[in-house]
Every structure is written in structure tokens, then in C-alpha cells.
Design a protein around this nucleic acid. Structure first.
Length: 278
DNA sequence: ATGTCGACGAATCGTCGA
């Protein structure tokens, strides 16, 4: 089973490119981020034509997360426990929740599509929101693993954190910036403490997943590694291959992020339908 | 170079977010 994550930066602007990639790369399940639309605006037809069902969480033109899968999805969950909100408080003092987290179960593998808040600037309220959002997610993850130690789990998405200095093209250029600060990295490391590991880096030790559209960042290979698949031990044990598809940053109308994928050695329902020979 | 995108509402541009 091949599973991937991709910040598509508007699914309406890129649906043909995404659907082509799914078919070409034989992907079973794709977690998308920044779909930038509501459900009634989502281009379902191209996914259906390619053989994929879609689950999505989209509230506005901002953010938005989704799954496309050609295997059945169940236990669809929007948001996670104690997820913080952001924006203008309502009369009861609560902040609106954004569409940044969607969970599904496929073949008994629990998967989350996550779009971690950007943080904007270290002094911005969005940065505090980012840290609280990650803290609540790692707490929820820790509790889930404790309750489901045998079940494969993967948290996939745009983490907006570069865990290592080598995950940005010039760490000195990021002095005082978000994505590389000690609190963000500590919040990211908490997921390892909770029992997850980066299942891609052991196989793909170097390389970026994002290049800004501005300032010729891609031609100069001035990128950032901020998209990750973090798996629980049962998930990590099933991984047989991984990749970062840098080619998807090339050509006409690319997203500023590229897909990150893993192959899992798990029995799929497709496999159950194969003819048997004896 | 503040060097690009994509969303929106409004209008063929300004503004926001990344």
C-alpha cells in the first residue's frame, strides 16, 4: 500500500496535476493540505474518474485538509481533542477552529492529514497558536498510542517546522525566523517522545520538500524540509520504501510543496480480492 | 529586488496569507 502527503496549495488550481500523479505513481491514499476550498467547491469529479474517494475538511478559502483514497476510508474525524482555535472570539469567548486536521482509517491503519499553523513571526499571536496547536496534538497522539499500541498510526502533513539545521538551505538566513526556533523544534520532538518516528528520513536522509515561489528558490535549490510522515512503531515496522518526489516542483503550475510517500507492507482489501491459485 | 502564487471581493486591482 502506497501512502503519500502533499500540500497542494489549492486543489482547484492543481487537480489535474494531482490526479495524474496519483495514477502515475500508483498511490493508494493521499493526504492533502491547503486545499483552499469548501466542500461544495471541491473538484470531486477528477478524483472519482481516477478511481479515488475523497474525504475533506474545508471551512473557507484558507487551509483545508483532505484524503483521496482508492481503498475504503472509515472513522472520519475532523479536528483533534482540545485543538486550539484562532481568530476572532465569539460571544462565549471561544476562538473558531480552523480546518487543519482530518483523520481516517484505511486497512486498519490510522492516518491524519495535518496542516500545522505557519506561525508567521516569533512575536505574532499565530506563533503562540502554532505551539499550543502542536502541544495539544502531541498530547492527543500520546493518549491514542497508549490506547492502541498495536495499531499502525501515521501523522502526515505540512508541519511548518524544520527539525534540523540542514533542513533549510542556510540556517544563518533563518536567525530570528519561525520554523527553526527551539520551541518549535521541541514541540516537534515531543511527537518522537510520544512514540512516533520520521519514517522517510532514514531512507531519504537529505533533500527538501518545499521551495518558495519567490526569489528563484527552486532553481537555486534553496528549500526547506517541512513535510513529514511520522509513524508509530507498528507503522514504521511496515514501511518498505519511501520517497520525496522533487520532480513535482517542476513544470507548469506546480505547488510550492512536493509529495512525500511511503510504501507499507500490509495486506490490503485489494489483495483480498486477488484471485487465488492452488 | 518587496523578484510569486492563489484566494477573495470587487472590479480588470488591492489585500491577505504563505
Amino acid at each position: 500500500m502506497r501512502i503519500a502527503t502533499w500540500n497542494v496549495n489549492s486543489i482547484r488550481a492543481r487537480v489535474d496535476r494531482v490526479a495524474d500523479w496519483l495514477v502515475r505513481e500508483d498511490v493508494d491514499v493521499l493526504a492533502m493540505q491547503e486545499i483552499k476550498c469548501k466542500e461544495n467547491q471541491f473538484p470531486f469529479e477528477q478524483f472519482t474518474a481516477a478511481g479515488y474517494d475523497v474525504e475533506l475538511h474545508g471551512l473557507s478559502q484558507w487551509n483545508g485538509v483532505a484524503f483521496a483514497s482508492r481503498l475504503p476510508m472509515s472513522e472520519v474525524t475532523k479536528d483533534f481533542e482540545n485543538m486550539p482555535g484562532f481568530g476572532v472570539a465569539s460571544d462565549d469567548g471561544t476562538l473558531p477552529l480552523e480546518a487543519r486536521a482530518l483523520g481516517v482509517t484505511v486497512n486498519d491503519v490510522r492516518l491524519w492529514s495535518l496542516y500545522v499553523p505557519n506561525g508567521r513571526e516569533l512575536a505574532h499571536a499565530h506563533y503562540d497558536y502554532k505551539l499550543r496547536w502542536l502541544d495539544a496534538l502531541s498530547a492527543d497522539t500520546r493518549a491514542w498510542i497508549a490506547a492502541n499500541p498495536q495499531q499502525p498510526l501515521a501523522l502526515m502533513g505540512d508541519w511548518n517546522v524544520a527539525p534540523l539545521d540542514t533542513d533549510v538551505w542556510d540556517i544563518q538566513a533563518f536567525e530570528g525566523s519561525t520554523h527553526v526556533s527551539a520551541p518549535e523544534r521541541a514541540a516537534f520532538d515531543d511527537f518522537m517522545d510520544a512514540g512516533l518516528t520520521d519514517v522517510v528520513r532514514p531512507r531519504i536522509p537529505t533533500g527538501y520538500t518545499y521551495w518558495d515561489y519567490k526569489q528563484l528558490r527552486f532553481p537555486r535549490n534553496e528549500g526547506m524540509r517541512i513535510d513529514f510522515i511520522l509513524g508509530s512503531q507498528p507503522f514504521a515496522d511496515a514501511v518498505t520504501n519511501a520517497g520525496i518526489d522533487r520532480n513535482e516542483r517542476k513544470g507548469d503550475a506546480p505547488s510550492d510543496h512536493v509529495p512525500v510517500w511511503v510504501d507499507l507492507d500490509v495486506e490490503t482489501e485489494e489483495d483480498d480480492d486477488r484471485p487465488m491459485f492452488w
